[in-house]
Design a protein around this nucleic acid. Structure first.
Lengths: 250, 250
DNA sequence: CGTTCCCTTGACACCGATCAACTCTGGTGG
DNA sequence: CCACCAGAGTTGATCGGTGTCAAGGGAACG
């Protein structure tokens, strides 16, 4: 994340970890002392290719990225969104090649932390090791939910919007009321994620708009009534496992 | 697994771990010395309920189990099969409640290993910790593949059969040729897994049968030509990450 | 001012759900 | 030994949701 003075820090990563576990004194410093490289990846470019054997942990600092694979017929399927603070490349721990690829959906800033640094960090700070496990379990839970929701396109789209809202606003303004966030991706990318065509995503957005569940203007999404949207989507945020039921404040 | 003398051992677990990593001397003994309880779970009964905060690692020794969740409309969706040697309940490490449930698809024998035992094991045998990570990454890869395959029911079914064949025969007779294994689950359960109705699963089986890709008689599946089925399913086993490309023998 | 994405909307075809009926098998009890 | 029954497999007819193809509109950008 680029601060006001242009310095890039691992702040988003730290924020994510602290939502998952109660960091112990020293853990924060240990993370902030991590050495890392910066990778700028332009929109639509792969950050990690399928088959690559990575030796870094990649942390998204700015922008949106996604995991994806190619279907036999050449079409792309996105299997997860990576938002600021999210990481990928844990395959490095097992020296296993990536079975999927990572693409930048928008221009992205990534931190590349060497595996040895991560291993030292975990050895030093067991809570962080636990946080990494926890984050992976949540990744899996999100994926399970995607499998689960494969029926009724409108509800599926609504559910995805709820997921993104919850993940972007984790720990902030839990109270009901209108919410807003940038949705910097195209309807085609959303279609790739949900296994639907962009045409149909568009139709689904119209349904949601006409039901006053969402409003979207130039890349910015507004949810007038989160509870209403969650109800329509049958969205239950517990699978995201926010510490203390969403009150992720430290 | 019940041996010829009726003794239950963690052999299937050990077999799985040794497929993932090169176990070091002592690791095998350490696993065999683990203390565990036995749980017999009857077909269609939950082994772990959703929301439960588990304190054991559960290992399937005999029978087939599955992860599942309930959709808002009450229908069930299976999100993964647990075969002998597979484990679940890693949520225990994070003291996190289960966001899904585990059901026995057939009568099952499970081993319940206390969390403290697992933590001690991992502290002692780092390769086993790595194997657990690896197994979880493969779980995730399998789930990703399920998301990926959500198009074309016949191919999806064929792909699932390839997955089960590969997982059941890991490391044994890699060569082509007819393969056989018990498929002790109903077409309805398969439908729950693929998000299709049992009626349609039946039609898909017919397609595969008429194309001589599979034969199924009283719960036993025969694949006359694995390569042909894999081609039809566009099945690429690399996502299962067998060590040394499937030659999982020690 | 033209080009390029991306969003938007319509017409039609097709896959898989639904509903319904029937068969087959194994088990249980008379 | 047979009658019955329950669960699973099998097949047909119809309906709806989503893909596909096509055309047009609007905004950003050179």
């Amino acid at each position: 994340m680029t601060g006001r003075d242009g310095v890039v820090t691992l702040r988003p990563f730290l924020r994510k970890l602290s939502q998952l576990v109660q960091l112990q004194s020293g853990d924060t410093d240990a993370v902030e002392l991590l050495q890392f490289k910066i990778a700028q990846v332009a929109r639509q470019r792969d950050a990690i290719a399928r088959g690559e054997t990575v030796s870094y942990l990649y942390v998204v600092l700015e922008g949106w990225a996604a995991r994806y694979s190619l279907r036999p017929d050449g079409t792309r399927r996105i299997t997860g969104f990576l938002l600021p603070g999210d990481f990928c490349g844990i395959h490095a721990v097992c020296h296993a090649p990536m079975d999927h690829a990572i693409v930048a959906l928008t221009d992205c800033t990534l931190a590349k932390i060497e595996l040895t640094q991560v291993e030292a960090l975990v050895a030093d700070s067991p809570m962080i090791g636990r946080a990494l496990w926890y984050a992976k379990l949540i990744d899996e839970a999100i994926l399970r939910t995607w499998v689960l929701n494969s029926s009724d396109a409108v509800r599926t789209l609504a559910h995805l919007l709820c997921e993104l809202d919850a993940r972007l606003h984790h720990g902030t303004d839990i109270e009901a009321g209108p919410r807003r966030f940038d949705l910097p991706i195209t309807q085609e990318q959303i279609g790739d994620a949900l296994g639907l065509t962009s045409v149909h995503i568009n139709r689904c957005f119209r349904h949601l708009r006409e039901a006053d569940l969402v409003d979207i203007t130039q890349g910015r999404l507004t949810i007038p009534d989160v509870e209403a949207l969650r109800k329509a989507a049958a969205f239950d945020p517990t699978y995201l496992h926010w510490r203390g039921d969403g009150s992720g404040r430290r």
